[in-house]
Amino acid sequence: MSRKKLHTRWQLLLQIVFTIGVLFWLLHNTNWPSLSQRFAEMRPWWFVAAMASYALNLSVSVIRWRIILLAMERTAPILWLLRLNWVGAYFNQVLPGAVSGDVIRAWYTRQQTGSMPLALAAVFGDRFMGMGALIVIAAVAFALGGARVGLLPQMGWTIGILLYAYALIVLLILSPLLNFLEKISGKLGDKLHDIRLGMSALLRHRLALSATIVLSFTIQCISVLTFWLLAHALGEAPDAVALWVVWPVISLFLALPISFAGWGLREGLMVFYLGYLHMGHDQALALSLLLGFTMVLTSLPGALLWIGLHRHHEAPPDLQH
């Protein structure tokens, strides 16, 4: 077995252990009758509206992805990208890590971009712009949140570090300090150079950058709407700080590859933060679980769409077995 495969298996094992461990601890401290009652009394039309909101999120984000490709002087049919976005959303929910579906999106657009690194750059740019919007939303909401945000432990430091890290990445992409990548020989150097070139093209293209910024804020507002609808489906009236600070920050942490498709990590953070906003353990856990189920159910068509792709296109290496 190669070192790379061994590393991947150990990473998967650690993600599974982390997910099971956190969920076991949370469920062990849960009032099961109370949790079951919350789901039994769920308002179905609010839940349907939340699924529609998440589907809208997936659809609108395709426009941002296509604009990024155009900024890189590449293009692909919008319906093709829409299909791949749904496929990617599905695999993000069922594969380890939080970006497996993004790699699959890049794999199936490598022909349109001319190379896998440029395809990865476009997909990374799509996610990177979305993360930037989340950080700004959380930062502005934290600054305007008044005394309520003071209830959240170390949230100011957390958002500050996220802002600093994001700005540093942008500077490194645009800075000539990374020109040494061009001098690295072999495939690694070519890939790193192409990824940086693709991201630089987006950040230097004013019209495309402006459009993706506007779309990113729109998409993240739809994400907040989904959160709000699901809370109301469970009969909750979430605090504005929960909507505009806690949920964006949790969404950012879900990009970390430390749990299986975000499960466990999302529930742990939700119970932790919402507890300081006076939402009970069972309430926060029910909301988090419902968020996860909503994303899985809404992205399920992606499985059928991928089956059609698999018949006519080569599958990514990790999915060929």
Rank of each mutant, 00 (worst) to 15 (best):
3 R>W: 00
11 Q>K: 12
13 L>P: 00
14 L>G: 00
14 L>Y: 00
15 Q>R: 03
15 Q>S: 00
16 I>F: 04
17 V>Y: 05
18 F>R: 10
20 I>T: 09
24 F>I: 08
25 W>P: 01
26 L>C: 05
29 N>S: 14
34 S>H: 10
34 S>M: 07
35 L>R: 09
35 L>F: 15
36 S>H: 07
36 S>K: 11
41 E>K: 15
43 R>A: 15
43 R>E: 15
45 W>Q: 15
48 V>Y: 09
48 V>C: 11
51 M>Q: 06
51 M>N: 03
53 S>A: 14
76 A>P: 07
79 L>N: 13
83 R>M: 04
87 V>I: 15
94 V>M: 04
98 A>I: 02
102 D>W: 04
102 D>M: 07
106 A>S: 10
106 A>R: 01
112 Q>C: 04
117 P>K: 11
129 M>F: 13
130 G>Q: 02
132 G>Q: 05
139 A>K: 12
144 L>Y: 04
145 G>A: 12
152 L>H: 03
153 P>I: 10
156 G>T: 09
156 G>K: 06
157 W>D: 03
166 Y>D: 02
167 A>S: 10
167 A>L: 12
169 I>S: 06
172 L>F: 13
173 I>P: 06
173 I>L: 15
175 S>P: 13
181 L>I: 12
186 G>C: 15
186 G>Q: 14
192 L>N: 04
192 L>F: 11
195 I>L: 04
200 S>T: 13
202 L>M: 12
203 L>M: 00
205 H>E: 13
207 L>S: 09
211 A>L: 15
216 S>L: 01
217 F>C: 05
219 I>L: 07
222 I>D: 01
222 I>K: 04
223 S>F: 14
225 L>G: 12
230 L>V: 13
230 L>W: 06
232 H>V: 11
233 A>R: 02
236 E>T: 06
236 E>C: 05
249 V>A: 01
251 S>V: 00
252 L>D: 06
257 P>H: 07
260 F>E: 01
262 G>K: 01
263 W>N: 01
264 G>H: 04
265 L>D: 00
267 E>I: 07
267 E>T: 07
271 V>I: 12
272 F>M: 11
273 Y>Q: 02
274 L>P: 02
289 L>P: 08
292 G>E: 03
292 G>K: 02
292 G>Q: 03
298 T>W: 06
303 A>R: 02
306 W>S: 09
306 W>R: 05
308 G>F: 13
312 H>F: 14
316 P>R: 09
317 P>N: 08
